[in-house]
């Protein structure tokens, strides 16, 4: 069975990134998964165990003094070393800030081609096929690479399931300091430990708020409904621009794409760029005081009303029914 590399991101505080599960699951559908990990010191036993649980048959553990101190280059060096060592059928990275820069540089370095923002993978007689969801899910496109190494950036949260657990065989290499210009990391500013809420990209329910909430104090209403439903919190770009909530909550064309079972839009007009990030949700609910708001064109259940009167009642009604 051919090898498939998966670039595993490790937080600078230690710990395997959440994207690892989907990457190894996708790698396992295409061949034998090889986890490629860069770290400053030796890989922790916990990390090895975790990667085994997630299905890594092999681990290519690259130690580099530059890990965490230099942007992305150590990951590219590790991947190109692993490409030489394992002659893989494909290389997978997360479609994350670091993952896609690593994929891009690797493609130039080893002569590969990038299939971007992939939501599903499959192998057809040895050819790696990638599926993309384009223009807000309006199109499904299947693509492949001809005559070069396919390098896929996998949309975070898109791959379901987990590869069967394995006992990984670990190879350790140490990386030389790379050549060429590098970008230096001076400091990490971590986000405050996030609430116990589910992760936006993979949540089964998402409650989003827009400019209609009017202020960051009022935005708490969105969070209250989310917590009542056990949902993740999302937002429109206008709400992010107004400072009601962090940019990482933005849903849409230039934010996160979500496909939950239930998406509730509060005080969001439903601009086409917002819809591009949520219109593949199974069920859409909208509450907006403008009966002509475009969000109603895609809503399965719409309420023309004021969020400040409807949402508190909704919270009570849901609580009453779940008791």
């Amino acid at each position: 069975m051919s090898n498939v590399l998966a670039l595993i991101e490790v937080s600078h505080r230690g710990g395997i990134a959440a994207s690892a599960r989907g990457l190894l699951a996708a790698a396992a559908t295409l061949g034998s998964p090889v986890a490629v990990v860069v770290s400053a010191g030796p890989l922790a036993d916990d990390d090895v165990a975790r990667l085994g649980e997630l299905g890594a048959a092999r681990i290519y553990s690259a130690a580099s003094a530059a890990a965490g101190a230099v942007l992305v280059s150590p990951a590219v060096d590790a991947l190109s070393g692993a490409v030489d060592a394992y002659e893989p059928a494909a290389v997978l990275t997360a479609n994350s800030v670091d993952g896609r820069e690593a994929a891009a540089r690797l493609a130039v370095r080893v002569g590969g081609s990038v299939l971007a923002d992939v939501v599903q993978v499959r192998s057809d007689n040895g050819t790696v096929l990638a599926r993309h969801s384009v223009f807000g899910g309006a199109y499904t496109v299947d693509s492949a690479v001809e005559g070069a190494l396919p390098i896929l950036t996998i949309r975070q949260g898109a791959i379901e399931g987990q590869a069967p657990a394995a006992t990984p065989e670990v190879s350790t290499v140490s990386l030389e300091a790379g050549t060429g210009g590098t970008a230096v990391v001076e400091q990490f500013n971590d986000d405050a430990a996030i609430s116990g809420r589910p992760e936006l990209r993979t949540a089964t329910t998402v409650v989003s708020g827009g400019r209609g909430l009017g202020s960051s104090e009022n935005f708490a209403l969105v969070e209250q409904l989310a917590d009542t439903l056990g949902a993740a919190v999302g937002a429109s770009r206008a709400a992010v621009d107004a400072g009601y909530i962090a940019q990482t909550a933005q849903v849409g064309q230039t934010g996160v794409s979500v496909s939950p079972q239930l998406y509730i839009a509060l005080g969001i007009s439903g601009a086409i760029q917002h819809r591009a990030g949520m219109q593949t949700a199974k069920t859409i609910v909208a509450i907006n005081k403008d009966e002509d708001a475009p969000i109603f064109e895609v809503a399965d259940f719409g309420i023309v009303g004021d969020v400040f009167t409807v949402v508190p009642k909704l919270i009570e009604a849901v609580k009453a029914r779940s008791n």
Partner: peptide
């Protein structure tokens, strides 16, 4: 990179829309 197939998703249809008279929640 080659595109092998393109499929268009049918557009979503609007569902029920109620005007709040105090009972919509």
């Amino acid at each position: 990179t080659v595109v092998l197939s393109v499929a268009e998703r049918p557009p979503r249809a609007a569902g029920r829309k109620v005007i709040d008279d105090g009972t919509a929640a």
